[in-house]
Simulated assay, not measured.
Amino acid sequence: MRTFCVLPALLFSMACLLCVTVGSACDTCGCKDAKHDDAHTAGEAHQHDIVDTAIENGSFSTLVAAVQAAGLVETLQGDGPFTVFAPTNEAFAKLPAGTIDNLLKPESKDQLVAILTYHVVPGKVMAADAVSLSEAPTVNGKAAPIAVSNGTVTIGGATVTATDIECTNGVIHVIDSVMLP
C-alpha cells in the first residue's frame, strides 16, 4: 500500500530530475538533437539504441568507453530489450583514483564485464514497475537490491536520478554511482 502513496511523488521527482539533468537537450532521452522532442511528445520511443543514446547524451562518455573496452557494444545495440542503470561520468569519478584506468586495461576485461553486466537487466523495466520490486535480476547473474525510501529509489546502493529514457531496444535509468557486484 505504501508504494501507491510514494509512487506519484517519486515519478514527479524523477521527471523533475530528468528535466534538470538533460537541460537543453531532448527532454526525454537527453540527446542533443532537439528534433526528437516531437516524437517523445507523441509517445514514441527514442529512435536510437541504448549505446547511441548514451553517446548522444554526453553524460555517459566513461560508460561508453567501458562498454567499448568490454566488447559489449554489439550486445547493447542488439534487439534486447534491455534495462540499463547507467552511471554518469560523475558517478565513475567517485571511484577511487586509478580504478577506471585499471578496469579499461585488456587484462581487466572479465572484471569490467562483470561490473557492466551488473548494470543491465534483461527486459524493459520502467520506473513504475521497478519501484514495486525488491531486487532486479541482472545479466551477470546477481540480483541488485532495490529500495524506495522517502521518494528516493536506490538500486545496488546507487540513487536513481532520472528514469524511463526509452530507446529502440530498451530503457535507460540514470544512477549516481557505479554499482559493484
Rank of each mutant, 00 (worst) to 15 (best):
A136F: 02
P8D: 09
K32A: 04
E135G: 07
M126E: 11
T21E: 12
F85C: 07
A114M: 03
T163A: 14
P122W: 00
H40M: 07
V20Q: 10
L95G: 02
N57W: 00
V125G: 01
T99D: 02
D110M: 03
L112K: 11
F4H: 13
P122S: 05
T163Y: 01
A66R: 07
K32R: 06
G78P: 10
P122H: 01
D176P: 09
G141F: 10
G123M: 04
L76F: 15
G151H: 10
D37S: 13
T159N: 14
L7M: 14
S134K: 13
A128S: 12
V178S: 06
L18E: 06
D27I: 03
I50L: 15
S61M: 12
V174W: 02
V22I: 13
T21L: 15
E44A: 15
I55E: 08
G23H: 10
G23K: 09
A93G: 09
L11H: 09
G58E: 05
A143Q: 12
C16M: 02
T53A: 14
D79I: 10
L112A: 11
Q77R: 15
T83A: 04
D110T: 13
S134C: 13
E56R: 14
G170W: 00
P145I: 00
Q111F: 00
S149G: 02
